[in-house]
Amino acid sequence: MMRRTARFGAMAVALTACLAGTGATAQAHSVSPTAETRTVSAADAPFYPYGKLVHVKSVGTKCGKKPLAKASGPGGTRLGISETKSVSTTLSKNIGVTYNAISAGVGWDVEKSRSITVSGTREVSRGKHGTLTAYTKYSGKKFDVYDNLQFKVVQKNKTAYKPIGVCFTYTEK
């Protein structure tokens, strides 16, 4: 019985010695990101290695600004677009946490591209010239970044948008 008490006592002293070193000094040490925990921040933007997403809310859908595909032609024809594109998640600039933290917060892998099938047709009126344009349709989440070392929100109103489909515009002249 004495031996067990002595061993537990030694472990308690070792544990106390380890815990005694965790003060303000221990929190000031930085963690450099590895390949598994790449950061989304620019080099001069703040990075929060222990950051997480809070106040995550859906912001609905929107159409992208860069065309995925375009078809145009004279009146009396049918314009058609049919192809598959790989599209990435779009993120706010200078989010100071890792991709893993963002993925966990929004609920999807932000590093993974998605395959979008673009397929659509439109008849062009006689005597006109028509243009059919396809854009990526995104579903978005808005969030704040909380730093677990400072115990406060350090970045507000950041966004992540996941590609979910296609939006079309059609113009005739």
Score class of each variant (00 low, 15 high):
90 T>S: 06
130 G>S: 04
84 T>F: 08
40 V>A: 08
135 Y>G: 03
130 G>I: 02
32 S>R: 09
110 V>Q: 03
63 C>Y: 03
49 P>V: 14
69 A>P: 03
91 L>V: 05
135 Y>C: 06
116 I>D: 02
41 S>W: 08
126 R>M: 12
100 N>M: 13
134 A>C: 05
136 T>A: 12
133 T>I: 05
97 V>Y: 01
119 S>I: 14
94 N>T: 11
22 T>V: 15
26 A>G: 07
75 G>I: 06
56 V>C: 09
23 G>A: 05
50 Y>M: 09
114 R>K: 13
52 K>F: 10
82 S>D: 11
63 C>F: 05
110 V>I: 07
47 F>E: 02
133 T>A: 03
117 T>V: 14
102 I>A: 02
60 G>L: 08
111 E>G: 15
30 S>M: 11
87 V>I: 04
67 P>I: 13
120 G>S: 09
132 L>T: 04
58 S>L: 09
125 S>Q: 11
53 L>F: 06
137 K>R: 14
25 T>C: 15
121 T>P: 03
72 S>N: 13
64 G>W: 00
124 V>G: 00
116 I>G: 01
83 E>C: 11
63 C>W: 01
136 T>K: 04
19 L>C: 14
125 S>K: 13
106 V>Q: 04
59 V>G: 06
103 S>F: 06
44 D>N: 09
104 A>H: 03
103 S>D: 12
133 T>W: 00
97 V>T: 05
27 Q>N: 14
68 L>C: 09
20 A>L: 11
58 S>W: 11
85 K>Y: 12
53 L>T: 01
73 G>Q: 07
124 V>E: 01
46 P>E: 10
134 A>L: 03
77 T>S: 05
43 A>Q: 10
96 G>F: 02
39 T>L: 14
35 A>G: 14
25 T>K: 15
113 S>P: 09
24 A>C: 15
66 K>E: 14
48 Y>M: 03
75 G>H: 05
53 L>R: 02
30 S>E: 08
74 P>Q: 07
22 T>N: 15
78 R>S: 07
120 G>I: 11
58 S>C: 10
55 H>A: 10
129 H>C: 10
24 A>E: 14
111 E>D: 15
21 G>T: 15
81 I>F: 04
30 S>I: 15
88 S>G: 10
95 I>N: 02
87 V>F: 01
108 W>S: 00
84 T>M: 08
40 V>F: 08
93 K>N: 12
74 P>V: 08
54 V>W: 09
97 V>N: 00
72 S>P: 09
99 Y>H: 09
126 R>S: 13
80 G>N: 06
105 G>P: 03
58 S>G: 13
94 N>S: 12
134 A>F: 01
34 T>D: 06
92 S>W: 00
137 K>W: 09
